[in-house]
Design a protein around this nucleic acid. Structure first.
Lengths: 248, 248
DNA sequence: TCAAAAGTGTTCGTCCTACACCCATGA
DNA sequence: TCATGGGTGTAGGACGAACACTTTTGA
């Protein structure tokens, strides 16, 4: 309740202190695969294991500020201001860090075109790894990463988030690939096209511009992200299998 | 990243300590209105103002445990274990509490049938107030409450969350009222009924049971919450107005 | 001339919407 | 017998899935 006026005094050190950190699940699309930014830990615990990038909150900044700062440091990107950065949830289980009580605010970030992995402010190595191949991560980062992937996949359905994976100018085929890679399914190009163009503000055409995509085929028209945030009606991912389970 | 091995030593007190709290937005349905549980602050700052219930994380518990503990204390409910409790997001802006640095993990909770407001462990007064009439709250709790309401409204669309507002046995009219009150719109009873019954696992009929609802009319069959969590396809709330604004 | 991707058209089924209509109950 | 809410039926329209077809490029 933030109402601590009745707890034993005002002593800031009355309780065992909590460390507050941010952890980042940074996704990008490279080579037709969903990739995730990881750093290799140089110290115990979990020395040598991959982990999500992150760090401590500084006294003057919010979790959002800290996340954006870490994102800039770890990716080496200059224009971090425009990137999609979204708070996921907070992980606070005692014992998630064996050294001390760490409460971690997790974020999911989407980067359109990933620059080379860059070791950031830390000495540890950083790399982009295809999602799903990263093996067990340090701490509870496997769970955080899975939660982030779920969130991104779900948000593609009812928001215009997909453009955050794309460069400033993109084709509808590239936009469709975002959905296909994150969801792991194929979509009908014709119906996808109609659906996107029928949503006002999802994408804006760039008149006259076109680009070849796969090296072959007809050059595709270019689009820029529109101003719309929500997608009504939603673009539902195909149900894998009806799964049944329904009595009746 | 939770990797603090490179920061100046291991001194737990090297940084200004953060206080970590939980704040709860507890909703219920009473008298056909959406109500919210609030406590009146007895001390500065914001003495006399309403605030969301909440409190400090204890050293041995997670934010979820703390939230459930506070929920039990503030509502006086016995079977808090089965209630819907969902992490909203974390609010960490510096200065949100004028006394010290407080990072607050906010939760939204849904209570089927609200018992009388109960002053919990704190001396402060607690009460259920209709949502929208609560005036300005303490701290940034207005924003937290608005975020919680948005989240609940959105989750009704694509999850089976609505049953969390209902007692163990309920009629479809009562379930429909949950949607109508939270969304502030009217729904077609006939179509709502078909939609709910067509979703396997949303509700389970209780054979032979029936109850009068408004004092008049045909007694309605009773249902219990089913095991399904997600609602496919979603139950979209009617668009208020097309809002236009879309070029073409 | 072929393969590949963009883009257009069309059909068919399904779901949603809207109402009309009957049923059971208390006043 | 009337008002009220529960419950069923149904016609019309909107939307999405599936697929055929044309266009434009590089190989």
């Amino acid at each position: 309740m933030s109402d601590n006026s009745h707890v034993p005094g005002y002593d800031k050190y009355a309780y065992e202190p909590f460390a507050v950190t941010v952890d980042l699940a940074v996704f990008t699309l490279r080579g037709g695969a969903l990739q995730i930014l990881l750093v290799e830990r140089g110290h115990e615990p979990y020395a040598g294991r991959w982990a999500l990038p992150g760090g401590f909150l500084e006294p003057h900044e919010s979790a959002e500020s800290a996340a954006r700062r870490e994102l800039a440091e770890e990716t080496g990107l200059a224009d971090v201001a425009g990137l999609h950065l979204e708070q996921l949830r907070t992980y606070s289980e005692p014992g998630r860090d064996p050294r001390m009580r760490v409460v971690s605010v997790a974020f999911a970030a989407l980067v359109p075109d990933a620059p080379q992995a860059y070791g950031g402010g830390d000495a540890a190595r950083a790399a982009w790894l295809p999602y799903g191949t990263q093996g067990p991560l340090a701490f509870d980062h496997d769970r955080i990463l899975a939660d982030a992937h779920d969130r991104i996949g779900g948000k593609l359905e009812y928001t215009c988030l997909a453009t955050a994976f794309c460069p400033p100018e993109f084709t509808l085929g590239e936009l469709r690939q975002v959905y296909e890679v994150v969801w792991g399914t194929d979509l009908d190009p014709a119906n996808f096209r109609r659906k996107v163009l029928a949503t006002p503000g999802f994408v804006e055409p760039i008149p006259g511009a076109s680009r070849l995509t796969g090296g072959r085929g007809k050059p595709a028209a270019l689009y820029a992200a529109g101003g719309a945030m929500s997608l009504h009606p939603p673009l539902l991912r195909p149900a894998h299998e009806p799964s049944e389970g329904g009595r009746r």
